[in-house]
Structures are given as C-alpha cells and as structure tokens.
Design a protein around this nucleic acid. Structure first.
Length: 570
RNA sequence: GGGCCUGUAGCUCAGUUGGUUAGAGCAGAGCGCUCAUAACGCUUUGGUCGCAGGUUCGAGUCCUGCCGGGCCUACCA
C-alpha cells in the first residue's frame, strides 16, 4: 500500500487566520490528503500551531494573559476552525508540546556533535522598559535616508531602504514606544548551513518536477551573494524551547530558547509523535513515518506552504535533517503557493480588511468557501478574492450545475416513480457515451490530483458534474415518460447513479455536500470509482433514496453587497 | 539595487519538448427544453497572445530590450 505523509505549514498562534492563509496551505493539502485516502493510500496528515516567538509573547501580553494560557486558548480556537472547514488532519498538534521540546533539543545536540553549530556573539538592541531584546523590526525611528518617522529597524517602509536598527534616528521600541534602549552583547547559536550548501544544492537539483516557485526561491538563497548563510537558531526570549544539547544543559545558553523557525518544522515530526501518544500507540507507530531505518523508506512525503515559507522548508529544515546524521525522512515534494489578495489589495489583520476564518463560517457553510477558494487557489500567480467572483462561482458551479442536477433528477423520479430507483429498460448508446466521457474525465481528474494541480482538478470535476445535466437534457425522461416509460426509467436510473459517483469524486473538495448526497442516496459506502460502468450500475431498481434539501442556496445580490460592505475594512 | 514570477477574449484562467484555422468557464447574443434552486441544453459574438526587435521554413511558445503587475531579499513568522 502506498504510504503518503502530508504536512501543511503551521499557522502562527497569534490570532485567527484569514482566507489567504487558509487557501495557501491547509485547504489544498486537505484536498490532497482526502484524495490519497480515497484512492486507498495510508495517509498521515499533520498540522499544528506554531506557538513560539516574539509576536506570540506580545499577543498574549495584549490579551492580558500568560503566554502559555494564551497559546492554549488560541490553539483550541484554531483547532475548532480547522474542524469547521473540515480539514482532515490526523493530528493538529502544538509546537510547544513536550515531544517537540525533546526532539528539538535532541536534534540541536546532534548538530552540535556534527560540528554544525557555532556560537556567535553579537550586539542587539535591548529595551529596558520592555525588559526584552527587540527584533529589528520591533524598533522604530526616523529613516536616515528619507526622513520618514515610522521606519522599522530592518527596512524603511516609505523608501524601501534596507536598514539596521542602529541606523535609525531617535529609535524607540515599537512595543512600548520607549526610547530607553541600549545595545547589549548577547551570544547565540548559529546553524552552519553554509557547510551543507553543496549537499543541499545537489539535493535540490535532483528534485525534478518541483514547482518553479519552490526551486527558484531555494536556488536564490543558495547562490545569492556569498551563498547560503549561517542562521541564528536561538533567541533571548522566555517563551520557547530552552536551549539544550539533548538532555544536557548548554553552557552559556542559559535563559535562551530556540528560534521558532528552528523548532517549527521539527514539530511536523513531533506532532506525529503527539498523534501516537493521543492514540495510545508506541514510538514505532510514528517512527515508521519519519525514520527511514524504521519503515519510512517507502513513504512519500509532500509539504504544502505559502511561498514565504519556502526557504525554511527547502534549506533550513533539510539542513537540520541532513546535518543530524540520523536517518530522518526528507521531503519528496514541496508544493508552494502564491498569495490570495482581497478585492484589489492585501488581506490585513490590523486594518480589519478581508474575511477571516471564523467570520467566513458565520456567513456560509464551509463547502462554499472550500469550492471557491480551491478553484481559485493561487498556483501560478497571486489571485484575488472579490465578492462578485465568489457569488458567481458558488451560484453557478455549486447551486446551478451540481446542486440543481441532484435536485432535478431526484424530484423528477419522486414524482413519476416514487422515492426508489425505477425498474425497466436498459442502458444504451447514450449511456455508453456518458460513461466514456466520464471515464476520460476521471483519468484527467486523477492525474491533476496526483500532480497537485488543484485548479485543473477543480475544472475537471466541474466538467464531470456538467455531464449529468447534458445527459438529462438529451435523454429527456420527462418526454420519454409519456410514450416509453421503460426508457424513461432507464434514464432516471442512470442519472440517479451519477449522484453517488459525484459524491465520491467531489469529496476532496466539498466533503459535507458529498456526505449529503450519499446519505440521500442511501449509499454511504460508495468508494472511489475505478470502473465507471460498474459505478453507474451500483444502485439497482428498487433501491430507496430520499430527495435532499436544497444543497446550495444561492447568494443573492443583496447578501453579496451586504458582505462586501461589512468586510471593506477601515 | 538584485533575483524570481507574471502580462493570452469584457472577467478568471488553459495552452505539453516552437508546428496547420489560439482553447475553456463565466459574462453577452440567439434558439431549444419545461424535470429542476427563473435552473438545464445547444449554437454563437469576442483575442494584431503587453510593446519593439531578433533567431527560425515556422514564435503565444526561444533570445534581447522596453513597459505594467506581483513576490522574495535571510532578526516577523
């Protein structure tokens, strides 16, 4: 049996994510996971909250809560939203888990043993008022280049000049506004990625078929300037994984924690260990997914992420894995996405611009969002959410093409033959033609899903739905019924059989509607089809069904205008 | 500044290693149907493929330059 390990980039803990975050990783990874499962793969689908770092500490402070408590609450919120969107994670973990602490410290120890960790002393800005070191972008001041007074310590947003915090005139803390800042010496661990550059480079070269977006970003980092730079993997923070070499203390690193980008990808592995524990399984149960010496050599590992995450997944994390000298599973395919914009601009948390996951579910069921977002997923370039496009896509594809098909054939059957599959007549040339057409489409659909070409897959799925309406229109059982009821019965039987087929094929995209269709057709165990002829003969004469409620209500113009006004932001 | 991506019908996008008359969905127009969520089906109007050169028997596809949009640029994550 094919074994597929799938991870989605970890959503950061400091708030509810917007639709752009959702469509850039979790949603497409869910489609792929569901498809792999339906096809019969053994799947491990992992995600988690990314909980460490300065923004988490600040968000907790703003909420007036201890950071551990804040993170626990937000994890619950994000976990519930994942459920709301039907994200079918086998485990939704936390990067703050004991498993991740242990594994992160273990890997750091191995890297140190391999000579891939160096200690570097550097000067950083410390805020006495805030009682913390400030990352570059948390320092604001006046730009020495253009005079803009809101410039950040890493870059001036106004003139785009790259800065360092000490360049700023009248620097202040972006957190408190305090000017009581000083430069302090602090020691940090660096991952010596540069020593692994050639190994990483040739590894990337061997990955034929990765998206250009993925490889071009990796190549840029490998070859830009002096090549891949070493990277600091520790921070002066309270909240995080304490710096240790395995179980042992790390002299000189007391009070420091690992950098979130060091521990976050390790959480993919640790979350699988969390899954094992949650299911009362032993270590071997998760190790067979991650240790090539313990069964993971036949696993195919696919990662999903937004483009901003690519360097960490193609370079830093592989460097950690390779450098450890231990047989951990490396990723086989890195699927990356561009961004989804909101009506001519970016989604903005601070400006309240755009739709966030909790708001979306308040407005409409998850299938509506899943369908539109997935059929517009930003694969080749950034894409854009507009209410008009959302309304059109949902109304046309879901309500008119799929929903109305189910509605028209079940209601017609009920009125002429009752709520059971009618008897009589045989399939003929018309049915054979549809079978041939859907067989061809199915092959294309599966190819696109295998290749993780989500947009193309959605277009193919839609074409399969449309084939049902085309068939009904040509067969016209409402006409045949008057002169040849047997022929009408055969047509109706055939069309009814399309419903469970559609449900099985649609499940990766719209799982709730798929379940509704199967329930209505009294066909809950319908498998992924391998033979369309057989699939369309599954429901026999006399098989009882019920007419489902309207599956997708249309979005009216008024409702659309209302939502548009509500989410414009300020 | 550097790098990468992108510009194809009114809109959203496909267009394999260059190969005849550039495709799909939506929107528009016409016709048909009346089972259905005024839904469905059929037909059809739209494109000097961003601009200008070049290579080639042949360029949407390759090369150069220019113009527009976007992203990344390593201490936010």
């Amino acid at each position: 049996m094919t074994r597929t390990l799938i991870t989605s980039a970890l959503p950061y803990i400091n708030g509810i994510k917007h639709l752009g975050n959702l469509v850039g990783s979790q949603l497409p990874s869910d489609v792929y996971a569901r498809f792999c499962r339906a096809r019969g793969d053994e799947v491990m689908f992992i995600c988690a909250t990314d909980e460490h770092g300065t923004p988490a500490e600040l968000a907790a402070a703003k909420a007036g809560k201890p950071v551990a408590e804040y993170c626990a609450e937000m994890h619950k919120v994000q976990s519930d939203l994942a459920t709301g969107f039907r994200l079918s994670f086998d485990h939704f973990g936390r990067s703050s888990s004991p498993q991740n602490h242990q594994l992160t410290q273990h890997l750091a120890g191995k890297l140190a043993e391999a000579g891939l960790i160096s200690e570097v002393s550097e000067k950083q800005v410390y805020s006495n008022t805030d009682g913390r070191f400030l990352p570059d972008r948390y320092i604001e001041g006046t730009c020495p280049n253009c005079g803009y007074d809101g410039a950040r310590g890493d870059q001036c947003e106004n003139c785009t000049k790259q800065l360092s915090p000490t360049d700023l005139i009248d620097p202040r803390s972006a957190i408190s506004g305090s000017t009581d800042l000083e430069v302090r010496e602090t020691k940090h661990l660096f991952l010596r990625q540069s020593k692994l550059r050639d190994q990483l480079d040739s590894w990337i070269d061997r990955q034929a078929g990765w998206p250009v977006l993925t490889t071009s970003i990796a190549k840029k980092w490998l070859h830009d300037g002096d090549g891949l730079r070493d990277r600091g993997i520790t921070r002066d923070l309270d909240w995080g994984i304490p710096v240790k070499r395995g179980d042992a203390d790390w002299p000189g690193m007391e009070g420091k924690v690992f950098y979130v980008w060091f521990d976050a990808p390790i959480e993919y592995i640790a979350a699988t260990a969390e899954w094992a524990e949650a299911n009362e399984l032993d270590e071997a149960a998760w190790q067979r997914w991650w240790r090539t010496d313990k069964g993971a050599d036949d696993v195919r590992y696919v990662q999903f992420m937004g483009k901003d995450n690519v360097p960490f997944h193609t370079l830093s994390f592989p460097a950690t894995i390779m450098g450890s000298g231990e047989p951990w599973k490396l990723v086989d395919y890195v699927k990356s996405f561009n961004y989804l914009n909101y009506d001519g601009g970016q989604f903005s948390t601070s400006k309240g611009r755009g739709v966030f996951m909790d708001q979306a579910l308040d407005i409409l069921p998850s299938d509506y969002w899943r369908w539109w977002l997935l059929s517009h997923v930003p694969e080749s370039s950034d894409s854009e959410f507009t209410w008009e496009s959302f309304q059109r896509g949902v109304n046309k594809d879901l309500a008119d093409v799929l929903g109305n098909f189910v509605s028209r054939i079940t209601k017609f059957c009920r009125s002429k033959f009752g709520e059971e599959v009618p008897e009589g007549g045989d399939y003929g040339a018309a049915e054979e033609a549809v079978i041939a057409e859907i067989s061809t489409s199915l092959a294309a659909y599966e190819t696109h899903l295998q290749d993780i070409e989500i947009r193309k897959a959605s277009a193919e799925l839609r074409a399969i739905w449309a084939a049902g309406n085309e068939y009904l229109q040509a067969a016209a059982p409402w006409v045949a019924f008057k002169t040849d009821p047997e022929a009408a019965a055969a047509s109706v039987r055939f069309a009814l059989n399309l419903i469970p087929l559609y449900a099985a094929l649609s499940e990766p995209f719209i799982p709730d509607a798929a379940a509704t269709m199967l329930e209505a057709m009294n066909a809950k165990d319908t498998p992924w089809p391998t033979d369309i002829t057989a699939a369309l003969s599954t429901l026999k004469a006399g098989h009882a069904f019920s007419v489902p409620d309207v599956m997708f209500a249309k979005i009216t113009d008024d409702a659309r205008d209302e939502m548009e006004a509500r989410f414009t932001g300020r």
